[in-house]
């Protein structure tokens, strides 16, 4: 295949292309997933401060 010999090297070639395509498809499908807004980050920080206070109280 493509002037390459045997199975292992052409397979490496195919897997290289396939894994790149997988990264592209994954990136496109999850392009907007997992976003954390500034508001959530504020809440997160508040949670952490509160958590530390609770720890100190305990």
């Amino acid at each position: 295949m493509l002037g390459l010999e045997g199975i292992a090297v052409p397979l490496g070639f195919i897997l290289t292309i396939a894994s790149t395509i997988m990264c592209i498809v994954y990136g496109i499908l999850n392009w907007n997933k997992g976003y954390v807004s500034d508001e959530e980050i504020c809440l997160e920080q508040k949670w952490k401060i509160e958590e530390e206070k609770v720890q100190e109280t305990l």
Partner: peptide
Amino acid sequence: VKSNRELNRAVLIGGIFIMVAVG
């Protein structure tokens, strides 16, 4: 990075970059 969204997007960019740079 700020959130998982940035990591998801980085998978796409990183995959293409590594294929070219290493391959």
